[in-house]
């Protein structure tokens, strides 16, 4: 019952803001400055009927997800390494601090000197995701109950059993929350990188060209694609997290 009420509340809130948008568009009455939601929806429907639209969207998704996956993997491995070795931590900490402090636009321009424009969004996403995952997974490893680790040591757990039965349930929630945060970050920084580097078949290129040729309806339609993809990914991830959370390995009871 509560879920149904929440759903109705959410639909009403979205309808309210769409109404505000439609009202402003009608008052302004200049589609070049602010097209109405109906015009954007119609344009989106036209775009979605073309194969090129799906190729562009999938290419952007591929680049961003690949960068995010590599960033998550590298962040987790680095966290495990730096929690184990203080020398490695001392060595890598300044590098991670620099990555964290550097603005994404500087990264885009710098990395563009070294790699091609097609790979660049992937590299940028990787650099944005890595420190966040590293921080979260390190916090998870450090918060693992020392007493349970001692128990595992006394009972001579093999390394894999210690990871699976002691570390994974402690680190799991930190890791999954990092993935959730990173996905939004990855999507935004990835599209920003595409806008600045305009790789072939990319949402960023479509956004850039829409702005260049003053096709405001297209600009809104592609922005809607970005928002919809982000929401879809977020939803997929939260469903995945719920399922994983029920597995004993990640702290669930397996029931």
């Amino acid at each position: 019952m509560d879920r149904r009420r929440d759903l109705i509340k959410n639909i009403l809130a979205v309808a309210f803001w769409l109404g505000v948008w439609a009202l402003f568009a009608a008052l302004l009455d200049r589609a070049l400055l602010l097209p109405g939601p109906w015009a954007v929806a119609k344009r989106l429907a036209v775009l979605a009927r073309t194969g090129e639209f799906w190729r562009i969207t999938l290419m952007s998704l591929w680049r961003i997800l690949l960068g995010a996956a590599l960033g998550i993997l590298a962040g987790a491995v680095l966290a495990a390494g730096t929690c184990r070795s203080s020398v490695l931590e001392a060595l890598l900490s300044p590098l991670l601090t620099v990555i964290r402090a550097t603005p994404v636009a500087s990264f885009i321009l710098l990395v563009l000197i070294w790699v091609g424009r097609d790979i660049l969004p992937c590299v940028i996403v990787f650099l944005m995701v890595l420190p966040s995952v590293w921080d979260n997974v390190s916090a998870g490893i450090r918060s693992t109950d020392r007493q349970l680790l001692e128990m595992a040591r006394v009972y001579a757990f093999p390394p894999w059993r210690t990871v699976r039965r002691v570390f994974a349930p402690s680190v799991g929630p930190h890791f999954l929350s990092a993935c959730q945060t990173c996905l939004g970050l990855a999507w935004k920084s990835g599209v920003a990188a595409e806008v600045l580097t305009v790789p072939l078949r990319s949402i960023g290129r479509e956004l850039y060209e829409s702005k260049l040729y003053l096709e405001t309806v297209d600009l809104f339609a592609w922005t809607a694609v970005v928002v919809l993809c982000s929401l879809a990914l977020e939803k997929l991830l939260s469903v995945g997290i719920r399922r994983l959370g029920r597995r004993p390995m990640l702290g669930g009871t397996g029931q």
């Binding site: 007493q147 349970l148 001692e150 128990m151 006394v154 009972y155 001579a156 039965r165 002691v166 349930p169 004993p248 702290g251 669930g252 009871t253």
Partner: peptide, 17 residues
């Protein structure tokens, strides 16, 4: 050869039965 230790605080894995 190997030592078993029943700790004072049970130290059970909270996520396992």
């Amino acid at each position: 050869r190997r030592a078993a230790y029943a700790f004072q605080e049970a130290r059970l894995l909270p996520w396992r039965t």
